[in-house]
Design a binder for these strands. Sequence first.
DNA 1: GTCTATAAAAAGATAGAC
DNA 2: GTCTATCTTTTTATAGAC
Lengths: 208, 208
Amino acid sequence: MSSPRPEKRRAITEAARRVFGTEGYARAAVDAIAAEAGVSKRTVYNHFRDKEDLFLSVALEGGHEVTAAIARLLEKHLRKIVDVTEDLTAFALERVAAVWEFPDHFALVRTIEAEAARIPRPVLDAWIEAGPQTAHLRLAPYLAGMADRGLLSLGDATAELAADHFNLLTVVNVNQRTFYGAVPLPEDEVTETVTTGVRTFLRLYGPP
Amino acid sequence: MSSPRPEKRRAITEAARRVFGTEGYARAAVDAIAAEAGVSKRTVYNHFRDKEDLFLSVALEGGHEVTAAIARLLEKHLRKIVDVTEDLTAFALERVAAVWEFPDHFALVRTIEAEAARIPRPVLDAWIEAGPQTAHLRLAPYLAGMADRGLLSLGDATAELAADHFNLLTVVNVNQRTFYGAVPLPEDEVTETVTTGVRTFLRLYGPP
DNA sequence: GTCTATAAAAAGATAGAC
DNA sequence: GTCTATCTTTTTATAGAC
């Protein structure tokens, strides 16, 4: 399972992400992954115990990458606030667009959700923590900071709860409608949904 | 494709719902569905063109059934309002519990979401309309009625938007955490989430 | 570790009798 | 329309040479 050719392993994981994303788990053939990666099938089995091991490795890796990308978006838009409404909206719009920016990953997310009941709990928990949960919770400190500066008023709500509501009203709402990007939604409807979501969030937590 | 033995067709669709729900689309074997239904595989192919036709028929049928069940919950809890908070909470709790009451159907929902990109658009649209969209939109008239009676104050929001927010804050929130019931969540956390969701909803739309 | 070739099993769909 | 038996293809995983 060690790998003196790290570039091959890399090629395999990238190919696997594409094929698993396009085909789903059961339909994806290891043959196809090997072909897409430009290696023989035997090489795939030298790097990964079996198909399931390959799938879960790719999923976990993708979770970390997307979480990192979202962390960069948080820094970009919410590190220094110029205008609360505009900055939150700009963040949410780019956050939502991640679904189209990493189509292979989010196709994988849909597959994971479908397979959730069949994935070993420790592995699933590791994925949830690496991916959605962390990406989700990292928003809270930024909101807390904004509240400290008087830009938001959390009342007796925790920053985590406010982050929860922000995500539901913007990202989750759009993802529900588009099945995580599988069904396209006109850009102006996305903008409308996010704008309304931010406005609603500020009715809950906007400065007095 | 006609069926002089309707009870066989029924047995097949019920078996298909269980097997597709348990195994997902690609993994589910028509052999297994036939065995579960107690008929031969050839009989399955006499009633349904192919595996995909069977899957989509079952999905659509399930969508209608669950939508009807949710309509009954709306009538039960929101036809006559005794206490706004309590009635909305009771409705949301039972609405959320539907995921555990129809485990096969919601396992199928997860599969549909995963396969969304591969399902023919007209068929997918028909399913969305029969299932989630209708179940979702039927809440709006009840909220509008409550607003008319002064039990809610919608401001300049439409009843559809308020319904959207109610669903996001309660049902969608729980479903996100549990992957539509695939990962269990302690009952008190469910209650806590729904209660908080209703309270937040009433901060937005409660009477003045 | 990587390749070609192959084994072994599974699954979708159909032929043909009744 | 329903059944048993079968065809055909696809797929996971491995043997064995280099």
